[in-house]
Design a protein around this nucleic acid. Structure first.
Lengths: 136, 136
DNA sequence: TTACTTGCAAAGGCTTTGCATCGCC
DNA sequence: GGCGATGCAAAGCCTTTGCAAGTAA
């Protein structure tokens, strides 16, 4: 929690209860969470917060690079703590999302810069299929 | 247009005016289009169609594998004619979407199967950055 | 104090659904 | 004729916005 305070201060953000609890949640979960999950978590933690505020905090955290915004074809966004860049394996049956590192597509990015003169800033790579459980 | 009729019939779909015009549009555009673009196009073509119908046609086309559904962080879906699998370069400034083939990540998929025992069925790979125009 | 943050209510954008009617095969 | 497709209206989600009140620094 002390650590969270520091993180927020470093980002030049005022330390509020909601922000601290949400940051806690992201650090604990280490997975892409949706806005409604956060609202529910806040309720559990007796830190009820309006969803408008949650969305505003999410936006702020994104701007400060504390979290990343992403989507998995669900028609809504998910957010994950930044820092450990990786990709995701999305199970099409149960919705479980696993992490996967080492994508190693720098080569591809160079090729794109060369062939298309497109300046790549970031990429998004998701694999869809069946997780171990759901293959049975 | 004759060709479209055949495509629809092969998919066991009734040949309606809206379906033909929408299929035309996908074939002509060869790019990911959003639902509202389709509604506007249909108006232009004097084939005004309710958006509910457009969404239902899009869903049907997806189920039949005629088009693919995808997203680019816009908070809405886009759809593209199936067949020529490729990835996209999304300009963060002007929103332009270019194609890019040859992603060559079969190796990565094998690695995922081995390491994670996850059965990869498809993947989604998008690059975000600046297109040639917007780099100036 | 003062600028930033929040709550509440409302609206906005995209997408889906129910139901009666229409039209392709 | 029958089943599937469409139009219309409404609702459902997710997300954003305006404004007044609250609060961290």
């Amino acid at each position: 929690m002390k650590n969270n305070r520091q993180t927020l201060q470093n980002a030049q953000l005022k330390v509020t209860h909601a922000r601290q609890v949400i940051l806690d949640f992201f650090i604990a979960e280490k997975r892409p969470v949706a806005a409604d999950e956060i609202v529910i978590y806040l309720e559990k933690k007796k830190c009820e917060t309006d969803k408008a505020t949650v969305y505003r905090i999410l936006e702020t955290f994104c701007e400060k690079g504390i979290i990343n915004k992403m989507e998995f074809g669900e028609g809504k966004f998910r957010y994950e703590i930044a820092g450990t860049e990786h990709h995701h394996l999305v199970c099409e049956k149960c919705g479980r999302i696993e992490d996967f590192s080492d994508c190693n597509i720098e080569e591809l990015e160079k090729e794109i810069a060369r062939k298309k003169k497109f300046l790549v800033k970031r990429h998004s790579l998701e694999f869809y299929g069946l997780c171990t459980q759901c293959q049975r």
